[in-house]
Design a protein around this nucleic acid. Structure first.
Lengths: 223, 223
DNA sequence: TTCCTATTGTGATTTAATTCACAGTGAAAT
DNA sequence: ATTTCACTGTGAATTAAATCACAATAGGAA
């Protein structure tokens, strides 16, 4: 038991990867309550999935459960870190130090989850050189250099829409492969790069849609 | 053509609903460029889906395309509003006026998309009564009353984890059925209510995972 | 008008995701 | 030591999602 790494040549579902984060959030809360072991049934109830799905998700990466005692809470949490690659700290940089950008700089949760906000950038020359939430704000001119020097792996985008695509292209050329984008604008990334969208309006629209539907008119909603 | 409303008794996929928001973002940009008609091929390329999927998604709600001219950009944008229910303004309220909450209060995008931030609440008595980004901050004591008076339909959660579940339960009892949650904490909502999670760490973890994988080891990634 | 081309909408098919259901098993009870 | 019980991990079955492929056809060209 407990060997990590995918079995055989099966592809890994991204739905499964997303649920890993969900499971881990629940595991952290159980850990705070000093609970050592948890069964698939309970963890599934906490996260709004079926027990079968939880077991299937975990089985993608090996077998971790102690039969009849369940899963070791702290161990599985650590295992998920290893799977997603946050057992080593990943450096982030932020583009755009507006209201949202400053809120992100103040957010404590990154460090707890294995991410470190190493730098911030802004196109506004008045902001370059200033310090926000304890972090120096660089000029966009320094993007490539700072990315290389600080070994930035993920770029968080919270700028105005104007320079967005340009920032992506330059960062990608400088070696950044991952982008987390808060800006409601159509973008594209080069081959081999990944961009994840956080679209608040889209979420609100989904809620708006749901609130008008009869329960049995939509496919299953996770709770 | 052009009748809205689902056909027959088929259930609507939430994946489809999520993509509607994506399509509309692209349609807005096309509209700004004064483009009147767009083919499925182009709109699909802009949004990173296949043309077949785009047509299938739209077909869920009727048929809107003019064969050989494509889709009317402005009309389809308006149609999507009608489908998701933002052709009429939806009132939001915000719980938690910390860094993130204030950033959300300053965000202009809500109004453009048919949402109005009608009120804000905070558990901190020092914040109650003050004004943030032009909006009065209420005490949590007033939650039920303000929700009813202002006809709040969606509650945005950006508070500390402590009072979170309590805020949900009270708002639900006061008639709110939709929640948008930024707080990294396990929650539950009563039957008939919906909660959407915005989990920044989860997105970062997904990116971290992706950046370590060979391209052909994961199932399709949208770009 | 008639023909040609390129596009939509959709049955049929394929692929992916989820759930079912149970064999095998480890721990606890007796 | 033996029995009992409830759990995990996983083949099989089911359900959902995405893609294929093409008939029908609107618009433009000749």
């Amino acid at each position: 038991m407990a060997s990590i790494g995918t079995k055989r040549d099966a592809k890994i579902s991204l739905n499964t990867v997303e649920r890993l984060s969900l499971y881990r959030r629940a595991l952290e809360e159980l850990s705070h309550e000093k609970i050592q072991y948890v069964h698939s049934h309970r963890l599934a109830a906490l996260t709004g999935v079926t027990p079968a799905q939880l077991r299937r998700d975990l089985a993608t990466f090996g077998s971790f459960g102690n039969i009849s005692r369940g899963y070791d809470v702290r161990q599985m949490s650590a295992t998920i870190s290893r799977i997603v690659g946050t057992d080593e700290v990943q450096n982030l940089a932020l583009v755009g130090v507006g209201h949202l950008g400053r809120a992100l700089l103040s957010y404590k949760g990154f460090e707890e989850r294995g991410f470190h906000v190493a730098a911030a950038f802004d196109a506004d020359p008045d902001k370059a050189g200033r310090v926000f939430a304890g972090r120096r704000c660089y000029s966009m001119d320094d993007l490539e250099e700072v990315i290389s020097t600080l070994n930035v792996r993920i770029l968080v985008l919270a700028s105005h829409p104007q320079g967005l695509q340009d920032a992506i292209d330059r960062a990608a050329a400088a070696g950044v492969r991952c982008f987390l984008n808060f800006v409601p604008k159509i973008t594209s990334v080069p081959d081999g790069c990944f961009i994840e969208q956080i679209d608040i309006s889209a979420k609100l629209e989904k809620l708006s849609f749901l609130s008008r539907q009869k329960v049995d008119q939509v496919s299953a909603v996770r709770r």
